[in-house]
Design a protein around this nucleic acid. Structure first.
Lengths: 332, 332
DNA sequence: CTGAAAGCGCTAACAA
DNA sequence: TTGTTAGCGCTTTCAG
């Protein structure tokens, strides 16, 4: 039993290969009766076009690559998952194939297998990005804005989001507001910290060095930081944690120390990460990042670049949304 | 600037196309000097073979597909992530392309784009599995054992793992052991429950219906179940939770109720899921499932089937490992 | 609206 | 060890 090809379908339908190809490609220049006959033949023969041949002949390949850096714990990251899901959904709608490439930078995706690339993050993949750019392969970078590189970016406004978060806390009457930062080697964490600082300045609220504690997005670092904050002679009345995981840690420490959240301490998270929120004793007020949307947008832009509906660089910045739950309260 | 092809390389190197192809494919029948010249030409021209042409000509395509069901929260699942990471790693080592297909069953992966398929789970993809089997496309199913289907399976011995867990608790002197099950529509949850039941029987320990509480793998369900357990006139001294998430919930409830874990209550988890364990106030004793290994094995088997190093069905069952931490204690 | 035919870039006999 | 050449299965002019 050999594989059936377009030839067999053409013969079965009593038309030429060209006509068969036309109905395959939905070209409208086919007489209705012929179209029907071809479609019947396809069904009868269970014909599936050979994508490699299609790609070779058409010089299109209808596939994009998603490259994800291989950190040690990238796969414990809510971020990676949302990206994957968003891109996965988008490619399905766009009817593109998705080639997944998880790399620490030492291997490369075979470039001719895709028409474009999405980098879920630039960190750890700088070289590959450069290489791709040099080959003029369409590409978009997520979660990072660059003015220097001629490449489209889709990112979240972490600075603005942190500002929004702080505004909320201030509006609730807080002025003794601490923050637990994320891993400051990441731009994301820096932006969130800057948002914290700038908003305090804007409101002429005194900044205290002791209120800035350095975390790493993980729960343990927040546990440590929160304990330190509670030991302060003049402890804060609110904590802005740069991640929900850290917010959960902070809440747990407060509870263990008999401090009621939110009555005695307002705690705000960041991410709206259900993985973390599920473990919180009380619902956390947080900033919801449109990660999923970011991924969908990135895929859409890439597709438009590939199909030449966009030329040049196109950046998108998405903003986060305040999700009020019950871990923050008006200062009484 | 047109794309450079093998032709250009051959001309540049002063050899034939065939020879060029040979060095591309690492066929050892090429004279060293020619090999070097070709390699130099490739580098000079920055030549990258066109994979579609290679695939069309060779009838191999060096790509496999991973199909992941699109549950509403598949992407909050530790399971999906471990699978993805494991398969991702394996394909990189095997130098295969990975096509990712996240589906709720209504769309299909273009079969000619891959040489084989891995199903991360059979649930929700029964039809696609059947279709694939019918086309005789190599395929392996993860996390599910079937004797009925002529298809290779790689799964974890959930029954045996649960038995091991119970043995541990019993060895610690417990006999009033409760369990909080997973979502019983899944085979995994059923197997774990059966392991619980069978081990109690084997040790002639009285089974009480009240000690079996039905959860859904999620924290909330365990919170509810644990509260019920604590209200019992004759509460258990140990709880075997079918997931770490549930174990965390159970521990939190105990602590809230002034019950010391592990002194007054031993709690055992399942999964060794760092996402959950990080939120636990105390380190959880649990069963570590080799999910990552399962994914790597599945990829390996698929590759062997494709390359005909294996014929027929080949199943692998992996067992879990007891990870002793501090949420369980000898009954005093 | 249709068909013949020329490739797409590469692999793999086969012959040398 | 090498080169010649016939396809792989499809798309796409181009002429009808």
């Amino acid at each position: 039993m050999k594989n059936i090809s377009i030839r067999d379908v053409a013969r079965e339908a009593g038309v030429s290969i060209a006509t068969t190809s036309r109905v395959l490609n939905r070209l409208s220049t086919v007489k209705k009766t012929n179209k029907i006959r071809v479609e019947a033949a396809i069904r009868k023969l269970k014909f599936r076009p050979n994508v490699s041949a299609q790609r070779l002949a058409s010089k299109r390949n209808n596939a994009i690559g998603l490259v994800i850096p291989r950190y040690s714990d990238i796969f414990h990251s809510f971020y990676a998952l949302q990206v994957l899901e968003g891109v996965g959904l988008a490619v399905e709608r766009l009817r593109l194939d998705l080639l997944l490439h998880i790399t620490n930078g030492d291997s490369f995706l075979n470039i001719s297998a895709v028409e474009g690339l999405i980098f879920s993050d630039i960190i750890g993949n700088e070289e590959e990005v450069d290489a791709v750019l040099e080959m003029e392969l369409p590409c978009v970078i997520m979660n990072y804005l660059t003015k220097d590189l001629p490449v489209s970016c889709v990112a979240i406004d972490n600075f603005g989001s942190a500002c929004k978060a702080l505004e909320h806390l201030i509006k609730l009457g807080h002025s003794r507001i601490a923050t637990i930062t994320g891993e400051l080697r990441s731009q994301v964490a820096i932006d969130r910290l800057n948002g914290y600082v700038k908003t305090l300045e804007r409101h002429r609220i005194e900044k205290r060095q002791a209120y800035i504690r350095y975390g790493d997005f993980g729960r343990d670092s927040a546990v440590k930081a929160t304990k330190e904050l509670l030991r302060l002679k003049d402890p804060p009345t609110a904590i802005f944690a740069a991640s929900d995981e850290m917010a959960v840690g902070a809440i747990q420490v407060c509870i263990e120390n008999g401090i009621n959240v939110p009555r005695d301490m307002s705690i705000m998270g960041f991410d709206d990460n259900p993985l973390a929120l599920g473990f919180s004793p009380i619902p956390i007020t947080t900033m919801r990042q449109p990660l999923h949307k970011m991924a969908v947008e990135a895929t859409g832009i890439l597709h438009k670049i590939i199909t030449r509906k966009i030329k040049g660089k196109k950046d998108i910045v998405l903003s986060s949304e305040l999700i009020e739950r019950s871990s923050c309260q008006r200062l009484t």
